[in-house]
Simulated scan of single mutants.
Amino acid sequence: MLEKLMRKKNTVADSVVSDRLESLKSRNIPAHVAIIMDGNGRWAKQRNLPRIAGHHEGMKTVRKITRIASNLGVKVLTLYAFSTENWKRPKLEIDFLMKLPGEFLSTYLPELIEQNVKVEMIGNFDMLPDHTKRAIRKAMDETESNTGMTLNFAMNYGSRLELVETTKKIAALVADGSLKIEEIDESLFATHLMTAHLPEPDLLIRTSGEVRLSNFMLWQLAYAEFSFLDVLWPDFDEKCLLDAIEEFQLRKRRFGSVEGEGDA
């Protein structure tokens, strides 16, 4: 009897999500959604579990959110998976985190291919362990021709490092005479970022209640709308994403201009 009631409850919940999804799709969907996935460790601690259990549960959330974002028509979903600062964590935790891409992609790659999702990565690829690089490279190669949503993992990524490396590339062009200093502007600078081929994020979501960027896409987020949610990443579900996108659709994006009566 209980099992039957649970199935009925889940069916009703799925129907509600489906109806909301279709309603939101008829309005302005953010082309690029970036998410700082925070709170795995706290989720595990609340349940007296090791931190790695939270990371494993968070991996399941990645699957759910990837699927619904793709269904919504999001063009790019960038997930902050591992920062350059995360190397300071305990070795056991780092080793587990480095295994997660292989586990996630080996489990869900067929599903991503079926959904026409293209896998990409930004960050320092060379510093990753060989098994992590193999898993990511395999997923990128096998989804290279997909034309649907881009699932972009920020892995071993730090925005300050990206900005420094971009500056070095441009300085080298000036040094060898192929670029004049007066030719450097925002547009040129952006073409040398890791995200040069992607649209800038329209919406940034951070889970866990923390209100900071943590060295994530500092250039690219200049005019993004921010949504800081008091929910831990493993508990972030389809409804949470739909709520964030619905709030985004209600906001007026001015990009520095003044529009509308009474605007400041």
Rank of each mutant, 00 (worst) to 15 (best):
K252N: 12
F153T: 09
I205E: 13
S15I: 07
E114M: 06
G39A: 04
T147A: 06
V174L: 05
L49F: 00
P199I: 01
Q115V: 11
H56V: 08
D176Y: 01
I113K: 14
G256N: 08
A171V: 06
H32T: 14
H197E: 15
E247G: 13
T207W: 14
E103A: 03
I122P: 13
S145K: 06
D235T: 10
D130S: 06
S70A: 10
S208Q: 09
E165S: 10
E103N: 05
H32R: 13
A175S: 06
D243C: 13
G256I: 07
E259N: 02
L105D: 02
L128T: 03
V164N: 05
L24A: 08
H197G: 09
M98P: 05
N116S: 14
D130L: 12
L151E: 14
A172C: 07
V119P: 15
S227G: 03
I68F: 07
N152D: 11
E259R: 03
P50A: 00
D237H: 14
F228E: 03
R7S: 14
T61I: 06
K25V: 08
K9F: 09
Q115Y: 14
A244S: 15
D176S: 01
V211F: 11
T107M: 01
K239V: 15
V12G: 03
D237N: 15
E246K: 12
S208K: 10
A69N: 04
A172Q: 14
A31N: 13
P90M: 00
I113A: 12
Q46S: 06
F216N: 06
A34P: 15
F153Q: 08
